[in-house]
Design a protein around this nucleic acid. Sequence first.
DNA 1: GTCTATAGAAGGATAGAC
DNA 2: GTCTATCCTTCTATAGAC
Lengths: 203, 203
Amino acid sequence: MAENDKLTEDKIFEAATKVFIEKGMDGARMQDIANQAGINKALLHYYYRTKEKLFTTVFEITARKVFAKFAPVFDENLSLEDKIRFFFKEHIAFLQDNPRLPGFILNEVNRHPERIRKILSSVNFESFFIKLYEQHKDEFQKYNITPATLPQIMVSMAAISVFPFAAKGIIEGILGKIDMKFNDFIEERKEFAAEFVINAISK
Amino acid sequence: MAENDKLTEDKIFEAATKVFIEKGMDGARMQDIANQAGINKALLHYYYRTKEKLFTTVFEITARKVFAKFAPVFDENLSLEDKIRFFFKEHIAFLQDNPRLPGFILNEVNRHPERIRKILSSVNFESFFIKLYEQHKDEFQKYNITPATLPQIMVSMAAISVFPFAAKGIIEGILGKIDMKFNDFIEERKEFAAEFVINAISK
DNA sequence: GTCTATAGAAGGATAGAC
DNA sequence: GTCTATCCTTCTATAGAC
């Protein structure tokens, strides 16, 4: 029974994740989710009470998964340059597997900024920055990276990695006009992005 | 009468633009738009027949306005470096005035890629790229910019400018934790972004 | 725990008076 | 051209049988 519970609840969670990512909170229908899970609508309410609760569960777990993908940058024992190469290679590969995640997260955060607060508050960003400084003290000095420019650089790195997926429809359309495939563009980007950023911070 | 027509239609259009940008197609309510315009719901249908038609009108005009903001880069008679500086200064300033536009466009395009096709098809991108090459032939050679890297560079520039606004909720949250204001971050970014990209393409 | 049936509310769209 | 009233569909949510 508890076995079966788990199965149904998981089935619902996975179905809901798929539908919410595709259509967003406002566009998703409980009926879609029930169909996707191969069960009845009433069961959704039995397990999650309301659409809002189901969505919140999906959103929080998904968003944490996404943010977790940034963490290795702070852990890996690599030189700054190799860390940048590692980041783009891994992060873009993750987005290749989950191309709709950026749009989903960004959209829901824009409409309800409070949804991200709980997640951000569980992360100690200050200590992350301090850790980075300690790990790469000498390199930061060499590259002239300061507390003022570090956030700019990190946002730029996130932008360069994430934006093509958030704007996939547009970029795909434009690339098509010059006979380029989105997937090829992304594949090239893993290396391009790393060298681009390394050059950018080298004076 | 035609005078009055115009006024009401415009009022509806402006109200709809505001509400759609805030809540998206799925989240917007005809009642919200009517309230915002200070008129009755039935009038919306009198002028625009359906919610879908009203949305399409708003989306197309808004999206064209957004894309038009990229055009000056191809026109201005400046050196490549000054063009990059010009782009970030102007484009980020535009987004400061319209911070919700990126999220709105990106989200609706993700959900309905066909909505952007008509707009993209009215733009001759190939000739834009050719024009760029002619204008900056020598500089492209000096910087070793090729047909393969130019799209990567341009997408990166769009990313660096647009992403902070598309991800405003998240970035604002993180910056707050290190006592930084989003507006200050953006103000600094106009210059940072330009020098970042110029460095990136200089070898 | 899972289903069918349905309540109850909301939202898009229209009819018809003025 | 603008309004009120209302239709009709859709959607979330619940009741109740099994």
